[in-house]
Structures are given as structure tokens and as C-alpha cells.
Amino acid sequence: MIFTHDTEVALANAVALVNSDPARSGGVEHLPDVAALDAHFTEWGWTGRHDGTEAELAEVRAMRPRFAELWELAEDDVAERVNALLAEAQALPQLVRHDGWDWHLHATTPAAPLATRMAVELGMALVDVVRAGELSRLQVCAADDCSAVLVDLSKNRSRRYCDGGCGNRVNVQAYRARQARHD
């Protein structure tokens, strides 16, 4: 494990949110309705307030571009944006234990809006990433026709493709190109 468990989960959740945006997923909206947001809430183990409304869905969707830009900024700019996310939410880090998780940080109350909690969780995770000098682990998929984001948590920093099948597709294309040269 490169980062603490809660940091890795927050980064993975941010990747899932960013890649749910039609701008990153080939024009397909992966958070099309409140039911999809409910499923995301449950799948990622969120706790606390969840209104289950169109307004909440719109707030979460609105965070995706802000999250996505963090994958493409220089360290000083990421730090500035993280500080802004945390300040907007009036984040107050606290140690908590719940639902089978050992001690970890929360920086909002459970009553804070879901989009705010998501922004703060990512902000706190990026604090760890920046402080560890590991910002290069935040990447955009290397496939020419994909703009999905990923977090490279491999020990040897070898991950280049998103979870959308791009690695397999690129490898098959390269194999076929090699075979065509031999024919």
C-alpha cells in the first residue's frame, strides 16, 4: 500500500466520479439519475447525509470537472486548488472510527452535503499525495482516444491505461499491426 487506505479509497472514488462524466467516457453519462447516484453512494461506502435528490445529483456532477482538472495540473496549482476545496468546505480534520474502518480522517460533519464531503475527501487525499511527492501517480489514460483518469498505485509505476479496457485494446492493435508486418 502506497497511501493509507482512506486516501486510496478517496482517490479511487474520485477516478470513478471523473470517469462517469460524458466528457471522459465517450459521451456516455454514467450518473444519469438519482438511482445511479444512490448506487455510487452505496458502492463506495459513503456515510452521512444523502438527500437522494436531483439537486444533490447536480451538485455531484458539477464537482467532476473540478476533480478532473486536478489530474492535469502542476504541483503548486494542485496545492492551490486543494486548499480552495478545503477552505470552501470549512474543513476541520478529525480522527474517526466507524463501520469497521480503523482510525482515519474526516474533515466535514456527516450532515454536510454529499458533494462537499466528496470534495473534501479528495482534497484530504491529495494532501497526502502532494506531501509524498507522488503527484505523478495521477494520470490520464495513455490511449490516444481516451481521456479517462487513473491513479497508478503499482509499485513500479507502470500503469498507463484506465479500467475501461484501453490497455487490452491497445495491446491487441499493436499485436495485429505486428502480425500484418509479418504477413
Rank of each mutant, 00 (worst) to 15 (best):
M124L: 05
L138C: 11
V120S: 00
A10C: 02
F3N: 00
A79D: 02
R160K: 13
P110A: 06
E72Q: 10
D145N: 08
E43L: 14
T53S: 15
A62R: 09
Q179P: 14
V82K: 08
L73S: 04
N171H: 09
N156D: 15
D102Y: 13
A115R: 01
R160L: 14
L138K: 12
D145C: 10
Q90M: 11
V140F: 03
Y161G: 09
W71P: 02
A14K: 03
A180V: 05
A107D: 05
V18G: 06
V140M: 02
V149E: 15
N168H: 09
V15H: 01
Q179S: 13
T47A: 13
T109N: 11
G167S: 08
N168G: 09
C162G: 15
A36T: 01
R137P: 06
A107P: 05
P65M: 10
A39S: 11
H98E: 10
C141V: 05
A74P: 01
L126D: 04
E88R: 03
L57I: 01
H50Q: 09
R64W: 03
E8V: 01
D51Y: 08
E134L: 15
L31D: 07
D51H: 09
L92K: 01
E29Y: 07
A177H: 14
T47G: 10
S154D: 15
L85P: 03
E134G: 08
E43W: 14
A36S: 07
A79Q: 10
N13T: 01
I2G: 00
I2A: 00
L153C: 12
V170E: 09
D6I: 00
A89I: 06
L70I: 08
Y161V: 05
R176W: 10
H30E: 15
A74M: 09
L122I: 01
R117C: 02
H5M: 03
M1Y: 08
R137Y: 06
Q179E: 14
R97T: 12
A58W: 02
A55N: 11
W103H: 10
L17D: 07
D144I: 14
R117T: 00
D163M: 12
R157W: 12
V172S: 11
G52Y: 11
V15G: 01
A174I: 10
A84S: 06
R181T: 06
T116L: 02
G123C: 02
E8L: 03
D163T: 15
N13H: 03
A112V: 03
K155T: 12
A58L: 05
S154K: 13
R137E: 04
L37C: 14
T53W: 05
V149F: 08
D163N: 15
T47I: 07
G165W: 01
W46C: 10
P110C: 05
D77F: 05
P93S: 11
M1P: 12
L11M: 07
L153N: 12
S158L: 14
R181F: 09
A132K: 15
W44K: 06
H106Q: 05
M1N: 07
R159M: 11
V149N: 15
P32T: 13
G100E: 15
E88F: 04
T42E: 13
D76A: 12
H5P: 00
M118G: 02
V151H: 09
C162D: 15
E29K: 00
A119P: 01
R178P: 14
H104N: 04
